[in-house]
Amino acid sequence: MTFARLRSLGFWSLVVAILTYMTLPTLVVLMTSVNPTEILAFPPEGVSFQWYEKALTYPDFQRAFKNGLIVTSLASTLALIVGSAFAWLVYRYSFRGRGVLEAVLWSPLIIPHFTLGFGFLLLGGAFKLQQGYGMIVLAHMVLVMPFVTRAVYVSLATIDPNLARAAANLGASPFHVLTRIELPLVLPGMAGGWLIAAVLSLTEFTASLYVTGSRTQTLPVAMYNYIREYADPTVSAVSAMLIITTTLIMFIADRAFGLRRVLAIDTH
């Protein structure tokens, strides 16, 4: 074996080892979720779906899942509308105060989620809206909006600016330029951004812990409360379902809308 082959073999072994470290916890979750007993055993001593049954029939999880769907659908859709409009504005116009507005709307990427969650908790308190859906939706919307804005902005930036001019030149009013040219071209970006926003909102935990109450808690919060009280693999089953769902969504999003571009991952 040549030295080059040896080096390449070493490098790829290292990569495989690191990827094992990254993916092993997920595999263990999937494994324990179908484990017949409460005590983990390796290798597993059979396959059982009792934990899935328990998870699906546990009232807290049922309600939390419903809450999560309400919050996620509202928050990600609001983020889609507001974020797309803002991305278009930033792409098209420069105006006074744009920098400040951008900084404020991007800040949830940097601000710790517990600070934001705490802020929305206090804000809700000030308006007697604490633990209500309104505040939860607002907090989630603010948290996921940068991702939608970015996805739409990236799509817009790849459009030849002359397309809008060409359309105007051919007689298209600003409304028609928007609806016939720009909207169809950014639709994939919007859809991708919306899916990312939905997944992030569905799995958001820290801020949700602050802004939800026992009645309005979302799935991750319910899972957290369960973990603190019980040690059986019911949460493994919920986790497994979440992992499978999000992975599927992301896979579809990548295939359909080129997620890598939205996330700005250049491989070539």
Binding site: R165, A167, A168, N169, S173, H176
Partner: peptide
């Protein structure tokens, strides 16, 4: 406005 001018244009791109 550009869209009311009735002027045709071919762009470089």
């Amino acid at each position: 406005e550009p869209y009311r001018r009735d002027i045709g244009m071919v762009f470089q791109s």
